[in-house]
């Protein structure tokens, strides 16, 4: 015979007969309800709140409305509009971080427990000092891309050589 859960309509998977004050009580519960009721224990009160207080720092996460003006912002490198980012939650390129710095900062603070500055690992190769070079590489790659799309292979070959020089400079710096 198939039983349905006493509390909801799902099939019962947990069956028990308990004698309470001389009265036989049959229980048929599904997994969920059994976890909440049948197998539920009163005495397991893990000090979760205590664990929480250790962790919840002053993360009031004050809402800073990004403002409608920023929705029209666009990234000069990849053309992504801030409004598109709002829809997809994905940025288009490294340049977006600079282009949207103002509207992003509130969002970053909310997402990272008020963290707004990187303090972790720095790439060995130049780290922050290489930002300028990275920007150069980015721009050059973009020109290369345009050249290939325009089928200007002479220019593309030249840019490819320049790019490879620039990139191997960086590799040399780490040695």
């Amino acid at each position: 015979m198939k039983y349905k859960c006493d509390k909801c309509d799902r099939p019962a998977t947990y069956h028990a007969v308990e004698i309470v004050k001389g009265e036989k009580i049959e229980k048929h519960l599904c997994d969920e309800c059994a976890a909440q009721d049948g197998m539920g224990l009163k005495s397991v009160h893990a000090p979760i709140n205590q664990l929480l207080t250790n962790f919840v720092k002053a993360t009031s996460g004050t809402e800073k409305p990004e403002g409608s003006a920023s929705l029209d912002l666009a990234c000069p490198d990849c053309g992504l509009k801030f409004a598109e980012f709002r829809d997809k939650s994905l940025l288009g390129c490294a340049g977006c971080y600079a282009a949207f710095e103002a509207p992003l900062s509130g969002l970053l603070e909310r997402a990272h427990e008020t963290g707004n500055h990187h303090i972790g690992k720095v790439p060995r190769r130049g780290g922050g000092a290489s930002e300028q070079r990275q920007l150069q590489i980015t721009r050059m790659r973009k020109r290369l891309n345009d050249a290939v799309e325009a089928e200007d292979y002479e220019l593309a070959a030249q840019l490819r050589d320049d790019l490879s020089d620039l990139e191997s400079d960086g590799a040399g710096a780490s040695a």
Binding site: A94, S130, Q134
Partner: peptide, 16 residues
């Protein structure tokens, strides 16, 4: 060459 900025660290597609 990994995308990196002094302020934001390693740059990722999703800011989270």
């Amino acid at each position: 060459d990994f995308s990196f900025s002094r302020r934001f660290g390693y740059l990722t597609a999703c800011p989270t």
